[in-house]
Simulated assay, not measured.
Amino acid sequence: MAAAERTGEADGGERAVKIACRNVWKVYGPKAESYFPDGDGRSDDPDALVARLREDGLIPAAADVSFDVRAGEIFVIMGLSGSGKSTIVRCLSRLVEPTAGEILLDGENLLRMDAKALTDLRRHKMGMVFQNFGLLPHLTVLENVAFPLKVQGVGEEERRAKALEMIELVGLDGRDQAFPRQLSGGQQQRVGIARSLCVDPELWFLDEPFSALDPLIRRQMQDEFVRLQTMLHKTIVFITHDFLEALKIADRIAIMKDGRVVQIGRPSEIVLNPATDYVREFTEDVPMVRVITVADVMERGEAAADGAPEVTPEMTLEAILPHFADADSPLTVLDRTGAAVGRVTPKRVLRALAEHGEAPARGDEREPA
């Protein structure tokens, strides 16, 4: 399913910014704050400041990080180990205290919140899922899922009903009285997801939640995650080092290296137009059929013939290739209102794949009239 379809974004519309990083730094070492006298993290030359910090023996784990996450968006942050991706997601929730910069939630700077307001925010507006499942072994599935509501002071009957609802949502109905040791890894992670959703968070942070799972279970959990987002439309920051995982779930991706964001864009933008050699190497093994979309290859304007199969701009070439298995006639492209906005032909598809090394160019590439 295309990202825009999951989020319900309207054609041509842009969702409001839910949470934003502005020049965020996390520097480990003595007197790190002294390098940022104004506290806002702004620097005329961030590269020079990073070099100076390292020369002085400090570690800039996150350096001048800025991005916006829109309401209902899955924003994926990627990078190799040590790139700063987990540091920055912890800064967003202030589990790690940023050294400088701003983190704005609906326009309010979280770094100015006192401890009580921050605790209240985490309890009511944030959900978090981490690689290690973090379940309490002496509690049942039901008790684990209901635990955040218990912390909030919600009554027993209400939290039980809400927990059972979340357990059913993640496909574990009937296992509410099981203990974590009686569950598989995938089931335990489903409990973690249900627990994080129990407070109905506005923001959902997931830090490599599926990386400890076996490949088959991991794919199943990715499918489950996409299904849940289709229903819930949460604002999500998702950390991973797996580009294929990012392709499956992301609306937009930020690539990090050495604490810096080096590129932000839609998956197809990053793969087709890498900003640096690092990004190019990071994405070089990605199958183009999973990246290139109808919007990248379509002819805008004239639709295909009446009765032609219909596709949408967000669909990948992988999704539309079966249409060409038994016929080589063009497909009609429909926008979100159902209006025909163009067509896509087999030659356009082949040309796009050939340009990126995944298909041979075949004969004359001129388009039919």
Rank of each mutant, 00 (worst) to 15 (best):
E156S: 15
E156I: 13
E157N: 14
E157D: 15
E157Q: 15
E158D: 14
E158I: 09
E158R: 15
R159A: 02
R159K: 14
R160S: 04
R160K: 11
A163H: 00
L164G: 05
L164Y: 09
E165A: 05
E165I: 03
M166I: 08
M166P: 01
M166L: 12
M166A: 10
I167K: 01
I167W: 01
E168H: 13
E168M: 12
E168L: 10
L169I: 09
L169V: 06
V170P: 00
G171E: 04
L172F: 10
L172V: 08
G174F: 02
G174L: 01
G174Q: 06
G174W: 04
G174T: 08
R175V: 07
D176L: 11
D176Q: 15
D176V: 10
Q177T: 15
A178P: 09
F179H: 13
F179I: 03
F179V: 01
F179W: 09
P180S: 08
P180Q: 11
P180M: 09
P180N: 11
P180D: 07
R181M: 13
R181E: 14
Q182W: 11
Q182N: 12
S184P: 04
S184I: 06
S184H: 11
S184G: 09
G185M: 09
G186F: 05
Q187H: 08
Q187F: 08
Q187I: 01
Q187L: 12
Q188V: 10
Q188T: 07
Q189S: 03
Q189W: 07
R190C: 01
R190H: 10
R190E: 03
R190A: 03
R190N: 07
V191Q: 01
V191D: 00
V191N: 00
G192Y: 11
G192T: 09
I193R: 07
I193S: 05
A194Y: 09
R195N: 02
R195S: 03
R195P: 00
R195M: 00
S196G: 06
S196H: 05
S196M: 06
S196C: 06
L197V: 06
C198A: 14
V199Q: 05
V199F: 05
D200C: 06
D200K: 12
D200S: 13
D200I: 08
P201I: 10
L203K: 10
L203E: 08
L206G: 03
L206S: 06
L206P: 02
D207A: 02
D207R: 04
D207T: 02
E208F: 09
E208A: 04
E208S: 05
P209K: 07
P209Y: 09
F210G: 02
F210E: 01
F210K: 08
F210S: 03
S211D: 05
S211E: 06
